[in-house]
Write a protein that binds this DNA or RNA. Sequence first.
DNA 1: AATAATATATAAGATGTTTATATAATGTAA
DNA 2: TTACATTATATAAACATCTTATATATTATT
Lengths: 114, 114
Amino acid sequence: MLQTDLIKGSIRTIVLKLLKENGRMYGYEITRKVEELTSGKIRLTYGALYPVLHKLESEGVLVTEAENFNNRIRIYYSLTEKGHSLVREKVMELLEFIESLQSIVSPQTGPSYA
Amino acid sequence: MLQTDLIKGSIRTIVLKLLKENGRMYGYEITRKVEELTSGKIRLTYGALYPVLHKLESEGVLVTEAENFNNRIRIYYSLTEKGHSLVREKVMELLEFIESLQSIVSPQTGPSYA
DNA sequence: AATAATATATAAGATGTTTATATAATGTAA
DNA sequence: TTACATTATATAAACATCTTATATATTATT
């Protein structure tokens, strides 16, 4: 597992992107999906995930629906219209950030006339 | 400029990598180099940079040399042996992290038999 | 003379994350 | 049938990290 503090700051974007791709999801499902997509390299903790979800809700970025499943309450989160445009922004920002990181840590991949 | 909270957690690795590539550097020079490499997209703030440098020094990862330049003191930072092996670790970790992020935000780039 | 750029640094406040903890139902293996 | 793993949501305390504001001072440029 990675689980370094690199994850700091990207949880919001990850959550938003997953909700965009998968429609509505519940918290546990989000953590599973992240593990699946990253081959277990990234694991969101609930102490980090739920505060993010609650904040996004209070900002009007997503809405919740509580449903009963097997005598348990399951809370589904889905993007609002505002959420959808935020995803686009945030994902672009993340891609730019990744590019920037790469230009620091990776050697130039320009033409090599070798 | 990006300057989102995505940078959180990657400053250490960025600093370490730059010191490895450039030998010794001083604080201001580090911020310049990051701006240069990222076309101004990432800007380290001093409030973030200096605490990181001081912490790395206290951990024995880097050492300082104060030199006089134009009537001003300039403090050069360079990696110790311990620092050199930490860079390798941290950069690998960052590359893995980038890969993980990409598998979340980017579409699969597998063979497309189209 | 004023401003921008160079240069290091700290404190206060804000934010975000980990770790620990609580609760509870269902499925599974011994 | 007991114990454990998995499913499921959630909060509080502690910790780490970052931004913003601030201080200081020299040199170069307009």
